[in-house]
């Protein structure tokens, strides 16, 4: 959408398929949206989103599948569910994002920020291994893989002093169960 900002979008060409997919597969009717922006006003990451939650819903209405799969917001959304909680129409925006993330992965669409994928992979592998996130584990691996060894080191020290960084790298008892959970839930057709 950014590229052709000076060419009007023709509403005659709107592809309803994504709105219909979201209606049928996620059970979400974006026509319920009042365009009030309460979702975006409450979003803790809204200030760094290229498309705020309200605009994401608007993109669905405009049938802009491509932007929905390539936008930054897709990968920097925390899935905190605040937008859903605030929405007067009860529109499950995080579920829309989940659906679009899956669709992007399936379609082989690269995230606009390549490291985002690495981060997600590390986070998930940490959970798969231990049944919970070991922050230290994820951070060290992330910095190792990106070659920025000292990134956020100061913040790390601060967090450590406040007891926000768990050094023990704890794990849940039933890690085998977690592994089985992963196997059962990973969609067969996902890459």
């Amino acid at each position: 959408m950014e590229d052709n900002i000076y060419t009007p979008l023709n509403l005659n060409d709107i592809d309803d398929s994504i709105q219909e997919e979201i209606r049928t597969k996620c059970g979400i009717d974006v026509d319920l949206c009042l365009e009030c922006g309460k979702c975006s006003g409450g979003c803790p990451n809204g200030h760094i989103f290229d498309y705020t939650p309200r605009k994401i819903v608007r993109l669905v209405k405009l049938g802009d599948k491509e932007t929905l799969m390539t936008m930054d917001a897709l990968w920097i959304c925390l899935s905190c569910q605040l937008c859903l909680d605030r929405c007067p129409s009860g529109i499950d925006i995080p579920a829309i994002l989940d659906y679009m993330r899956e669709k992007a992965c399936r379609g082989g669409v690269e995230a606009s920020r390549p490291r985002v994928k690495l981060f997600h992979e590390l986070l998930l592998s940490s959970i798969r291994e231990r049944g919970r996130v070991s922050e230290l584990d994820v951070v060290l691996k992330y910095n190792w893989k990106t070659g920025e060894y000292m990134k956020n080191a100061r913040l790390g020290v601060k967090m450590l002093l406040k007891g926000k960084l768990n050094l023990s790298r704890s794990r849940v008892k039933e890690t085998e169960e977690v592994r089985r959970l992963f196997e059962a839930t990973i969609a067969k057709d996902l890459p």
């Binding site: 000076y6 023709n10 005659n12 365009e35 605009k55 608007r58 405009l62």
Partner: peptide, 15 residues
């Protein structure tokens, strides 16, 4: 018809 979709901020048109 030419207009702006002011909710997303892009120029639009429709026949």
């Amino acid at each position: 018809v030419r207009a702006e979709d002011t909710l997303i901020g892009i120029p639009i048109e429709v026949t």
